[in-house]
Simulated assay, not measured.
Amino acid sequence: MIKSMTGYGTAQFENENCSVSVEIKSLNSKYLDANIKLPRIFMEKEIEVRNLLSEKLERGKIALIIDFSKKEDDTPRVEINDALFRKYYGDLERLADDVDAPKQELFKLAFQMPEVAVSKKDDGNAELWQNIRSAVIEAVGKCDEFRRHEGQTLAVKLTEYKDNIGALLEKVLTYEDERIETVKARISQNLTELKGRADVDQNRFEQELIYYIEKLDISEEKVRLRSHLDYLDQVLDAPKSNGKKIGFIGQEIGREINTIGSKANHSEIQRIVVQMKDELEKIKEQALNVL
């Protein structure tokens, strides 16, 4: 089972305090390339979110956007320390009496003294983050499922291209005997023409003919090519998706196809080799999008 690196997932969360929307898009990339946009109050959670993406989606060019908005809240965000304010005010009032100073600004001065007005600790942020985190996990799960679905489509295409190469290889076999006989006939004709002008050692000629034909033999390449195609089939059916391995197998398939082409010495086989290369390029192109 293979997965595509193309994916999409969303999730929403809403309660009486806030609303959250999470959106994830992913495309192919050799590594994890994550662009994460978090609400300002949760910027320190970026590493945690990145780890979630790495664990589930593994790699790809991923864009994650969290749209967060708090609903209207009339609760004061400042706490007043009454006792401390009264103490500051009383001390300032006594000092004003001692120096016969005006008291109009005492209230303002006392209110601005340290720790009189303290910002409230927002204890709800921890709980809120857990809700956001759950939404992120849900969106990641949907993106992963999208990738699985796309992977099924990719698997069908890759199998089709692989089978096409196998079918073309079978076509090569139909020309193989003809190719060797053609080579033998051409060399024998050249030898007949040469005999009229020079002495020819028949034994040496036969040895050279065997050597030349062996140089054109593609038996090993056919065996290796079939083996690579079978291995590709196994990788496509494996439990874990491995696009990089598919790419490596594609390189090995390409080597065997190129060698067959260089040894072909036959116009029809050369044409078939071009068709095989075309199918292989399709495999390589699709493999780039496999996780």
Rank of each mutant, 00 (worst) to 15 (best):
L291Q: 06
A101V: 00
H228Q: 06
R224Q: 12
K56T: 11
E93H: 07
D82A: 02
Q234P: 02
V140H: 09
R86M: 00
S219L: 01
E93C: 14
A155T: 08
I253H: 02
M5W: 03
N242E: 15
G254I: 10
I47A: 05
K121H: 07
K244S: 09
A11W: 10
D123G: 01
C18K: 05
K244P: 07
E46Y: 04
E16T: 12
L32C: 09
F205Y: 10
T153Y: 05
D233V: 05
N17G: 08
A139F: 07
P114D: 15
A34N: 09
G243V: 07
K263W: 01
D91E: 15
K240Y: 03
F13M: 02
F107T: 15
R50N: 14
K263M: 06
L109M: 14
S21K: 06
R50M: 15
E79P: 03
D98C: 04
Q286P: 10
N51K: 15
C143S: 09
R94D: 14
G90V: 14
I180A: 12
I187C: 07
R197G: 05
A34V: 05
D91Q: 13
E93I: 11
L232W: 03
G90L: 13
A287C: 08
E268I: 05
I180F: 14
T10R: 13
L291P: 06
Y211F: 14
W129G: 08
A11D: 10
E16V: 05
Q12P: 00
S241I: 05
I283N: 01
A83Y: 05
N81G: 03
P39M: 01
N35S: 01
G60E: 03
K215P: 05
P114H: 10
Q104I: 02
E79W: 01
Q202E: 14
E48L: 12
D278K: 03
L232K: 02
L53C: 13
K30V: 04
T10Y: 02
F85T: 04
L57Q: 06
N51T: 04
E193V: 12
T10M: 12
L158F: 04
S69E: 13
D67Y: 10
T259H: 07
G124A: 15
E48S: 15
L64A: 02
A185V: 09
A198K: 10
E58V: 14
G60M: 11
D100E: 15
V235C: 12
A139W: 05
I80S: 00
E181I: 13
Y212E: 08
K284P: 07
V156R: 13
A110P: 06
F42A: 13
T10C: 13
Q104R: 03
N81M: 11
D201C: 09
E44F: 05
F13A: 08
E46T: 08
L128Y: 00
G261C: 00
I260H: 09
I80F: 01
L209W: 10
V172D: 00
E268N: 07
